[in-house]
Simulated scan of single mutants.
Amino acid sequence: MRENTIAHAEQAQASALARLYGEPLFELPADLYIPPDALEIFLEAFEGPLDLLLYLIRKQNFNILDIPMVPLTQQYMGYVQEIRSRNLELAAEYLLMAAMLIEIKSRMLLPRPPAAQEAEEEDPRAQLVRRLLEYEKTKMAARQLDMLPQDGRDFWTPQAFFDLQLEPELPSVSPDDLRRAWLAIVKRSQLMAHHTITREKLSVREYMSQVLRDLKDRPYAPFEALFRPELGLPVLVVTFIAMLELAKETLIEITQAEAFAPIYVMACRQSDGESEVSPAAMATAQA
């Protein structure tokens, strides 16, 4: 009994015209008002008159090489009548094709003169068939192209920036670089400072010659290797001034491969001891 009730309820639900607030509606209300624009056919889904013709031919399973013009023209004109009052710009394009269909239909219905029957006249539908076949090929090719992976839709191209310069640009040594290196040396020397106060005379000229002697047997030396922190802060200061004087006189060259890289010192020319120091450098050192 319960199964029969359930089956009867399901049958009633299936026969309902619609649902209103979840309840089945079996009859339309007498005062129901449907606006004229409630039901509207949108023909913008077709890409043009040829698309519409091809749709009608495939829908009715017509032979595209032997198109029955009478039913095709009637169906096409039915679509055209729907859009004449809604979209004039769109209707003009479809009306042009409608005129062509009517012309083909008329040429097929009118009897041909005897002279024309003897000659082989081209089928009036031939031009339309060629256009439809070419359009169908183009549409299928466009559909196949659309199925291919597209950049921005199916995948994204990776992008990476890299420098194409073959020769690296070496940074120039600035006074700030020398200052930071000097402060690092001073900081290390303070760890070895002692409280013995002595007065000693230090010669800049002597340490200029000492630096040149240290560079005599090797092409270059690290900046820190030319200092002797164990001799105290005054010796470090004099050695630093001596190196600045040698760089000023172009007797040594201070280089750095890149920013924050180790600083190296190299001699510009090879000669013995004190003869490398020019008179101008000695005058500056004595001053």
Rank of each mutant, 00 (worst) to 15 (best):
E200M: 04
L212E: 00
V211N: 03
F161I: 10
H195C: 02
R228T: 07
Q165C: 04
A142K: 08
P222K: 02
Q190G: 13
P175A: 14
A242E: 05
Y135H: 14
M147T: 15
E167Q: 10
W182Q: 05
Y220G: 07
R143I: 12
D154K: 05
E253M: 07
D146S: 09
D217N: 15
E134P: 01
W182H: 02
T250H: 05
D146L: 05
D146P: 01
R218L: 07
M243W: 02
D177R: 01
E258Y: 03
L233K: 04
D176K: 03
L246E: 04
L145N: 06
R228N: 13
D163W: 04
E249A: 04
P149E: 10
I241P: 00
D154W: 06
A247D: 10
P229Q: 04
F260C: 11
F260K: 15
A184P: 02
L178N: 03
R228C: 06
A193V: 09
R213T: 13
F155A: 09
F155H: 09
A142H: 03
M140H: 06
I185S: 07
E136H: 03
F162P: 01
L148D: 04
E134C: 01
Q210K: 12
I252M: 01
K137H: 12
P158W: 02
V238H: 09
H194S: 14
E224D: 08
H195V: 03
L170M: 09
R228D: 14
A242I: 03
G152F: 09
L215S: 07
L246A: 07
A259R: 10
F260L: 15
K187Q: 14
E206C: 03
A225N: 07
S174C: 00
A181T: 04
K248P: 00
M140G: 05
R218Y: 08
A141E: 14
E230F: 06
Q210M: 10
V237R: 12
R179W: 07
L251R: 11
F260A: 15
L233Y: 03
E245H: 00
L246S: 06
